[in-house]
């Protein structure tokens, strides 16, 4: 198996002097293709900061992040949008769908940003949405979907560009039990069937069931949980 995500000695401090807070403290870990890594920890422990750094939305003070072999922390800011577009899929707790677009367009727009022609982008998006059980919701306004449906649209948007890595921030937090399980199943398929590396930041203990690795982060320090813990 190849390492799709490699995090080496990442540190990030916010503020300075007496008010300095070390959000991420010398963190290292890796995720291989087909693996699901779970990062858990209390609120304010640094898990979202770590995910933001891996997602190239925040620069670390020190350390390196490699995505599919590419050292993204060494790239200029100008090149990072392209990395995010092609190599990383994002799934958010609050879905973050574009309210003025319908379901199909929310997914197809990502392909269009990559340069795919509109018609082809919509065909690809439709195929994926049908696979995720949203074939009858294509023209729906996203505001009219249930939470579980919204998250599935968000997952389709994350996957449609066939990224190497999927980063999920509390993907089940706003969902009922049934929808949560459905999303868990989808995340497992993303890793096991599609061979992608999946990193999930969550409080939801149920997600431990699908994880290959579970990390605990507290005060910015990361340690791996053994499966027995």
């Amino acid at each position: 198996m190849n390492s799709l995500v490699e995090v080496k000695n990442i540190s990030k401090t916010f503020g300075s002097g007496h008010t300095a807070v070390k959000a991420v403290d010398n963190v290292s870990f890796s995720v291989k293709d087909g693996e699901i890594a779970l990062i858990m920890g209390p609120s304010g422990s640094g898990k979202t900061t770590l995910l933001t750094i891996i997602g190239t939305l925040l620069s670390p003070d020190s350390g390196s992040v490699f995505i599919n072999g590419l050292e993204v922390t060494a790239l200029s800011k100008r090149k990072l949008p392209d990395v995010r577009l092609k190599k990383i899929g994002f799934i958010f707790q609050s879905f973050n769908l574009l309210s003025s677009l319908n379901v199909l367009e929310n997914v197809a727009i990502v392909l269009e940003l990559m340069g795919t022609r509109s018609r082809k982008a919509k065909q690809q998006a439709q195929k994926l949405l049908e696979e995720l059980g949203l074939g009858n919701r294509l023209k729906y306004n996203v505001a009219n979907l249930s939470g579980g449906e919204k998250q599935r649209v968000s997952i389709a948007r994350a996957l449609v560009t066939n990224p190497a890595v999927v980063l999920a921030d509390e993907p089940t937090a706003n969902l009922d039990s049934k929808s949560g399980h459905k999303v868990m199943e989808l995340l497992r398929n993303i890793a096991k069937q599609e061979g992608k590396g999946v990193i999930i930041v969550t409080h939801d203990m149920r997600l431990k069931d699908i994880a290959d690795k579970t990390f605990w982060i507290e005060d910015g320090k990361l340690r791996e949980h053994s499966p027995l813990q």
């Binding site: 949008p81 995010r84 577009l85 990383i88 940003l113």
Partner: peptide
């Protein structure tokens, strides 16, 4: 912000 996060230029 979502579009920027996804990778829009």
């Amino acid at each position: 912000g979502v579009l920027k996060a996804i990778g829009i230029k």
